[in-house]
Design a protein around this nucleic acid. Structure first.
Lengths: 149, 149
DNA sequence: CAAATTTCAGTTCCACTGAGATGG
DNA sequence: CCCATCTCAGTGAAACTGAAATTT
């Protein structure tokens, strides 16, 4: 068995591969850290949206957090089970539910927010503050470009 | 319904989120493009390793391509069905198979390589050549740091 | 009528675990 | 005895599809 076992050079210089590998590692860090608080990534995304925007319909929550309509339903079920959000019918548009964050939900959001801040700094440990901003800005430009189709 | 439906600002400035969103989009581009050639991402990774390193054991292929041992078996089954690789028992270590790329496998690798080059340029369309190199180098530094535990 | 929302049921892909059999 | 390899069976999360029921 050779000593190094490095990846194919074609792969190693392919941006899509670097992004995928980094995302996989980040996902593991994030999932493990949130599991300790009985939460997952989707929970944080939804709580963050409710915390920032106030009571919101499920469809809008899904769009804001890039969570599929179908998964949004399932995740809100989990959050409601834990008493972190409350669903109520919207009086003005009876197709919709209005989802509200509870006081316990707000507490949990702040706990998760602190956990995720730590995850970011673990993930980007080798980069300076300026390099971290640079990375974020490059990725934001890619995403913004494709968001306009 | 508000006009914009932007994501929570907390999320939008979180590197792990930017990376995850970019990876999701890149994955969709890549999967769609490869599907047209009856292939998937794992196929390209394995063919690239075989093309660069020559005949290799399955365990080593898995390590080089970051594909789990279990998935490596399944993906090599698919590649062998398509006549793109050949498995033979290793005469010197009878625990191992030696996997070899066939001439048709090499052709397919080159086809996929061209497809993936196009995917990279679609994905990074808004970035200059210098910015693309910058992004790759930042991600490589993050990965290299964590590869040394 | 067309469009939006909520929900359910199901798929696909990726990452991973556990365990058995073979062999070094 | 311990370790590595190959294989199979199965799990779990994430992203997604299709369709039904309700309402605008």
């Amino acid at each position: 068995m050779s000593s190094e076992e490095r990846p194919p050079s074609r792969l190693q210089e392919m941006p899509s591969w670097l992004i995928a590998q980094t995302a996989t590692y980040a996902h593991r860090l994030l999932t493990d850290a949130l599991a300790a608080a009985d939460a997952r990534g989707y929970h944080y995304r939804l709580l963050a949206a409710l915390h920032e925007f106030g009571p919101t319909s499920q469809a809008s929550l899904g769009r804001r957090t890039s969570i599929d309509r179908s998964d949004t339903v399932a995740m809100l079920n989990e959050l409601a089970e834990r008493g972190l959000v409350k669903r109520s019918p919207d009086p003005v548009d009876r197709r919709q539910n209005v989802v509200t964050i509870t006081p316990r939900g707000t507490e949990q959001f702040q706990r998760l927010d602190a956990i995720l801040a730590q995850v970011q700094s673990d993930l980007l440990a080798p980069l300076s503050a300026a390099d971290r901003r640079l990375l974020s800005s490059l990725l934001s430009r890619v995403l913004a470009y494709h968001a306009d189709q």
